[in-house]
Design a protein around this nucleic acid. Structure first.
Length: 469
RNA sequence: GGUCGAGUGGCCGAGUGGCUAGGCAGAGCUCUGCAAAAGCUCGUACAGCGGUUCGAAUCCGCUCUCGACCUCCA
């Protein structure tokens, strides 16, 4: 599986998180099913130009000039911050994380191959892909449903200054101006590779000419992925990927969140609550949960209300996970085997897996997990017995619930305290005070713990704590 | 303008022909020193208008509204 990674010239935002979490779950689920998955996600550190695709300034070089840094310093800094953010979102590392600048010879080779096929041309030291010529044999635009005639009529006229023969042509290699910071020697000029080329070079190097899944954000479908398809076909006469998966956008007030619109919220801002649209900070797992409650192909609208609901939902699930790890099977004559209960649980367990099988529908799977959670909570509070389910179903339920949340969805407990043994001592004092009917003391302990985000749970025969939702 | 997609109960958000999605918020109940937690019950939603069908949120048509892509963006 190949997934388009970030261009490292700025902090990661909610949109990066959605892409990373979406494909993290794909990676996790396929691995869970027993597939051996090689997950390649690149880092773009050169060639990605601003504004007009082939005439703009390199994004990283621009940032470097602004901050008076080496471009590689910029790339390093933001690659590190991206890794930090993705790690706290609990995404697994890709198997290979190649960088564009580390694959310049491979890209030069590709340019030469495409030239040899007669599908590119050189102008003033730059090399462009000849889309019209390519289109004669292989249709360009199949992935995004575009027809070349329509694209041509919609595109603006060449201004005569352009080196391109046709506005749809895209750069494979660009000659660098003297002041350009990142440049390499090539047969055509001292320059740098075009943006679309790196993914073709790196995916084919590590996954071959025809691999299973290619992922990325929906905004990359055109033209980026179309160009990849064209490059792959030009060199290898094969579509690079069998399946293309695109995650949809995150919107804010119904509008796409994006760099160009300047309405994006970085992950650090979310974690700190440091942005004027944020009413509060939201934890990494809240963000992850929020992303998973929508199907990856749907747009997902950001709002404080939605995030707050996500926070409560996440904590409810995690409180359930703590309970699931605590309860064990006990034979209890008060709770005889109940075929109806068993059926409900098995139905939910099956449905949760079916949801994942059906295009990674995490939203639906989570819905079924909440139904299982009710059973687990009921067992814990004594409203149901483990023996109602029988040992086998009970064990399966607990194990599946746990693995589903932690291994498949990648949701883990955000510990508020590493002092759980101390907390338990305090709860013992609480219980003793309660038995002594010292309610003043009881209330104080309860209030103090609540301040720390911990809720005391009084049940019939026991006392426990939970994260405040 | 072209292409594509979406409109689901107070909010978020699954669901593509008949079977309770789920979460948040709200109401009631059980439990409880009081609470909380947990559980149970409830609201009877599918933009509008037509059509197909025994039956439609789900299919078809039209209308309205919103969005995405067509230029860099996850």
């Amino acid at each position: 599986m190949y997934v388009c990674g970030p261009t490292v010239y700025g902090d990661a935002h909610l949109g990066h998180a959605r892409a990373a979490v979406t494909f993290d779950v794909v990676f996790r689920y396929l691995s869970f099913l027993g597939y051996k998955v090689r997950y390649v996600r690149n880092i773009t550190d050169v060639g990605h130009l601003e504004a007009d695709s082939d005439d703009g300034e390199d994004k990283i070089a621009k940032k470097a000039k602004l901050d008076q840094l080496e471009p590689m310093e910029v790339a390093q800094f933001f690659a590190d911050s991206y890794h930090r953010d993705m790690q706290i979102l609990n995404t697994l590392k890709p198997s290979i994380e190649p960088r564009a600048t580390g694959h310049i010879p491979e890209q030069i080779k590709l340019v030469a191959d495409i030239l040899e096929q007669g599908l590119a041309y050189v102008t003033n030291g730059s090399v462009y892909f000849d889309v019209l010529k390519y289109n004669e044999k292989t249709k360009y635009g199949r992935l995004s449903g575009r027809v070349i005639e329509e694209l041509l009529s919609g595109s603006r006229e060449l201004d005569g200054q352009s080196e391109k023969r046709n506005p749809l042509d895209f750069a494979l290699w660009k000659k660098a101006s003297p002041e350009h910071l990142m440049k390499w020697d090539s047969p055509w000029s001292i320059g740098f590779p075009g943006w679309h080329l790196e993914c073709t070079a790196m995916s084919s190097k590590y996954l071959g000419h025809h691999f299973d899944i290619h992922g990325g954000g929906m905004d990359l479908m055109f033209p980026h992925h179309e160009c990849e398809i064209a490059q792959g076909n030009a060199c290898n006469h094969l579509d690079p990927a069998k399946y293309w998966m695109h995650n949809n956008m995150i919107t804010i007030n119904g509008q796409k969140m994006g760099k160009s619109l300047g309405n994006f919220i970085t992950l650090q801002q979310l974690f700190n609550g440091d942005h004027n649209v944020l009413e509060q900070a939201y934890s990494p797992m809240t963000i992850r949960y929020f992303i998973l409650t929508a199907h990856y192909r749907s747009t997902l609208d950001f709002s404080n209300q939605a995030l707050q609901a996500a926070q409560k939902g996440y904590k409810k699930l995690i409180n359930g996970l703590r309970i699931a790890r605590k309860i064990s099977y006990v034979d209890d004559p008060n709770f005889p085997f109940d075929a109806g209960q068993v059926e409900q649980v098995q139905k939910s367990l099956g449905a949760a897996m079916d949801a994942m099988d059906d295009d990674f529908n995490t939203a639906q799977a989570i819905g079924h997990l909440f139904n299982i959670l009710k059973k687990i909570n009921s067992i814990y509070t004594g409203q149901l017995g483990a023996s109602s389910f029988g040992r086998e179903v009970f064990d399966t339920m607990i194990q599946t619930f746990d693995r589903f949340i932690t291994e498949l969805l990648g949701l883990v407990e955000e510990k508020l305290t590493e002092q759980e043994p101390l907390l338990n001592v305090l709860l013992q004092v609480y219980q003793e005070a309660k038995l002594a009917r010292n309610y003043a003391k009881v209330d104080v302990i309860r209030a103090e713990l609540k301040q720390l985000g911990i809720i005391v749970k009084d049940m019939k025969n026991k006392i426990d704590w939970a994260y405040e939702e």
